[in-house]
């Protein structure tokens, strides 16, 4: 009985909701730290970081945990929302819930759905491109004896001239010696350029910037209730609760705010 209870019961659904939610909060903090390099780092630093994040085995494991958490959090949330809707088949003719609960706490499902749509859009625009399509490779222009030449920057810190028939690009990032057909170096996928082009696009740059900022406001409300709520669901309500609530509030404001600054910074500094 206990085994099924830990999967199916009302309380078990809440435990999973809390655990996946808190894991996703950790993910947010890590993702933010990485993304802030778009403001505080240069293109090479960011692309090195992007390469590390897509190839390191420990990060891979974490990323799979993140995908599972997002999917589980969403499915569990939808199931809970449906059950909760069924628990009150006839609605009140007059209801005044603002007197006893916060807006965010009553609208977690709606806020979560908006965030899910945002995540899908965000992954199509960046994650999918990074993983599946031919990305531009990071180049740099070097001036030598009055001549400007473009070079690919390679992962071993070297340079390979662009548009030189001696080299060909294979498998998206691998640089081959064209004559002997041997791989000699790896180039960096230029995620930095993709990101900057995305938010500086003449037509779509502004709408996407606005969409990202609005999504972060929604995320802030979701976290405002969700962070401290996760601890209550896990049975943690003690002398640390005021501190948890305060930390949750700060987390819910600061993290989405810093996330929102990134597209704003990129869009308005073109």
């Amino acid at each position: 009985m206990a085994k099924s209870a830990l999967l199916k019961s009302s309380l078990a659904k809440k435990y999973w909701m809390a655990l996946t939610g808190l894991f996703l909060c950790l993910f947010l903090a890590g993702h933010l730290a990485g993304n802030l390099q778009l403001i505080f780092g240069d293109a090479l630093q960011f692309n090195k970081y992007a390469l590390f994040m897509t190839t390191n085995p420990a990060v891979k494991l974490l990323s799979y945990l993140t995908y599972i958490s997002i999917i589980f959090h969403a499915i569990d949330g939808i199931m809970l929302a449906i059950q909760n809707k069924k628990a009150r088949p006839v609605a009140y003719a007059m209801n005044n819930p603002s007197g006893n609960s916060s807006f965010a706490s009553r609208n977690m499902a709606v806020l979560g759905t908006v965030i899910l749509v945002f995540i899908a859009t965000h992954m199509v625009n960046f994650w999918a491109k990074m993983h599946f399509s031919q990305m531009p490779l990071q180049k740099t222009t070097i001036e030598f004896q009055g001549m400007k030449n473009d070079f690919y920057i390679t992962t071993d810190g070297g340079y390979v001239p662009v548009n030189d028939p001696a080299y060909v690009i294979k498998n998206k990032t691998e640089i081959y010696d064209a004559n002997v057909n041997l791989k000699i170096k790896d180039a960096y996928k230029d995620l930095h350029k993709i990101t900057f082009d995305f938010f500086r696009d003449a037509k779509w740059g502004l709408p996407f910037t606005i969409f990202y900022v609005l999504s972060m406001i929604v995320l802030a409300f979701h976290l405002l209730h969700g962070f401290q709520s996760a601890f209550q669901s896990l049975g943690i309500n003690n002398k640390f609760t005021p501190a948890i609530k305060l930390f949750g509030k700060l987390f819910a404001i600061i993290v989405p705010l810093l996330f929102a600054i990134i597209p704003l910074y990129i869009h308005f500094t073109k």
Partner: peptide, 28 residues
């Protein structure tokens, strides 16, 4: 057929006897 708790805290506010949410946490 009761619904699931989403920790809105409305129950604690409306409870005529001031039963605290701490009790839900203890049950959890």
């Amino acid at each position: 057929g009761f619904g699931n708790c989403t920790n809105t805290g409305a129950c604690e506010i409306e409870c005529p006897k001031g039963i605290s949410l701490e009790n839900i946490a203890r049950m959890n």
